[in-house]
Design a protein around this nucleic acid. Structure first.
Length: 457
RNA sequence: GGCGCGGUAGCAAAGCGGUUAUGCAGAGGCCUGCAAAGCCUUUUAGAGCGGUUCGACUCCGCUCCGCGCCUCCA
């Protein structure tokens, strides 16, 4: 039985989907105006892992991950760059796709964009207005009347009065309550025509929160199983989604809310505003993408995860151990034998709120067994790795992959042959000279019964 | 100020009321012409103070420290 920590309940709960055997899952994607950083990467990899585990558990999964392609930052950036919103977002969507593909993140079943769902958003706003939950303010914006929604604050554990007492809530004169949020922003003259839609409340564009309510309902229905996103979306974004959707439908919106922890740098949240972020692009130039994925799955998804080169280096060493155990094992698609003891441990770990650290520990135990001579378990190791989107490459290809500035493979082979000749002639001084020379260039030789192999260290 | 999360060995990171987590690093050994890899053995834990218990890293309370949300943010 799969158990998931539900933010709404603040505890792990048995996961029971609405319709037996199938799961509807929505995850808040990113706003496309810049490169993805490692924090985005973590969210993407974590929910990719969740989806893969649901599939491996036999569920029929519909996975929706949106793209926010209209918002203040996008508009500002496009104006700065002197390009259209469409050009800017198309470019960063392409970069995102490239980064995610490298990380082994599979495409969601649906990847709706906010700009494609404006009619659905307007419909939702209309319903909210008819129920008295939305009102048009003096400035022309349509706002959500937070006080009119009884459950507001349940997800984030905040009460309206506590929020009110906070010093950081800015005062906006157009709002009846400082905590009200915008559903529809009235168009400003300075803004490009591209961001103006007609509506019964006048020309304008959607507020941020409404898009997720509209898109999730359109693709998964008014009530669905799992909604995920980064911890920072818990409030206000997800709180507002609940208010909007449940306010309009009168039904329960989402059963299970999942939030992944932050990536940190020096114990501080990695974020755009702090400027301490590392883009996936830059990291992937230095580290193998699978190493990055492994690094991200090595921590539990709800725990904070510190980023540094040393940690990534450590992850590389660990993943190398797994691939080393796989050396010589037949490639191809191994299937998991779920009755086998290690697989059962793996499953128990994953069923306990997606315990990837424990699941990976099982993989290392399995590697040890393989190294001790139980070669028949290599397929199981590879197959279980595959459940997490790992270990699917040819081991040799992984072990020999590396920096672009290294020696070409053919040159390495030539020197290995020269060393072999020296060894045959018992000229060990020359053989060792070649080994050390290669070692200085990051190439490690391994003599085995079947011949000499090499890898990059 | 309000709400919440966490403090585990040199580093990273889990589960668990009593039995080796795991990876990297360190030490010794086996193997090797020498190595590497692997295997075997092994050193480093559970912020502090109380409490519950036959027994606590694991449950409860307090203290200290760190982090997050309360504003755009994965």
């Amino acid at each position: 039985m799969l158990r998931i920590y539900n933010t709404l309940a603040r505890e792990k709960q048995d996961f029971v989907p609405l319709r037996p055997g199938s799961v509807g899952m929505y995850v808040c994607g990113i706003t496309v105006y810049d490169y993805c950083h490692l924090g985005h990467g973590r969210m993407m990899v974590v929910f990719d892992m969740v989806r893969r585990w649901l599939l491996a558990s036999g569920f029929d999964v519909t996975y929706v991950r949106n793209i926010t392609d209209i918002d203040d930052k996008i508009i500002r950036r496009a104006v700065e760059n002197g390009e259209t919103i469409g050009e800017l977002t198309a470019r960063f969507i392409r970069y995102m796709d490239e980064d995610l593909e490298a990380l082994g993140v599979q495409k969601p079943d649906h990847e709706p964009r906010a700009t494609q769902y404006v009619p659905q958003m307007l419909d939702l706003i209309g319903r909210l207005e008819r129920k008295g939950l939305a009102y048009k303010a003096a400035g022309g914006d349509v706002n959500y009347a937070v006080r009119k929604f009884p459950g507001y604050g349940r997800l984030s554990g905040k009460s309206l009065d506590e929020l009110r007492a906070g010093e950081r809530v800015e005062v906006d004169t157009g709002k009846s309550d400082p905590l009200d949020f915008v559903l529809w922003k009235s168009a400003k003259d300075a803004e490009p025509e591209e961001v103006k839609w007609d509506s019964q409340w006048g020309r304008g564009r959607p507020g941020w929160h409404i898009e997720c309510s509209a898109m999730s309902c359109a693709l998964l229905g008014e009530t669905f199983d799992i909604h995920g996103g980064g911890q920072d979306l818990q409030f206000p974004h997800h709180e507002n989604e609940i208010a909007q959707t449940e306010g309009a439908t009168g039904k329960r919106f989402v059963n299970t809310w999942m939030h992944n922890g932050f990536v940190r740098v020096d114990d501080e949240k990695m974020s755009k505003s702090l400027g301490n972020f590392f883009t996936l692009r830059d990291i992937l130039r230095e580290f193998d993408a699978e190493v990055v994925r492994f690094f991200l799955l090595r921590a539990h998804y709800r725990s904070p995860l510190n980023h540094s080169d040393a940690h990534l280096q450590d992850a590389k060493g660990a993943l190398t151990r797994l691939y080393t155990a796989l050396k010589g094992a037949p490639a191809g698609d191994a299937k998991v034998d779920w009755d086998e003891a290690y697989a059962r441990r793996f499953k128990a770990a994953m069923d306990d709120d997606f315990g990837t650290p424990e699941a990976l520990a099982v993989l290392f135990d399995l590697a040890n067994e393989v190294n001790r001579g139980r070669r028949e378990l290599a397929g199981q190791l590879r197959a279980l790795g595959g459940v997490l989107g790992l270990l699917q490459r040819d081991p040799q290809a992984f072990l020999q992959a590396g920096g672009g500035e290294g020696l070409p493979d053919a040159e390495i082979q030539r020197r290995i042959d020269a060393r072999l000749a020296a060894r045959k002639a018992k000229n060990y001084a020359e053989a060792d000279r070649i080994r050390q020379e290669l070692a200085r260039m990051g190439v490690i030789l391994e003599d085995a019964a079947g011949g000499t192999t090499w890898r990059r260290g």
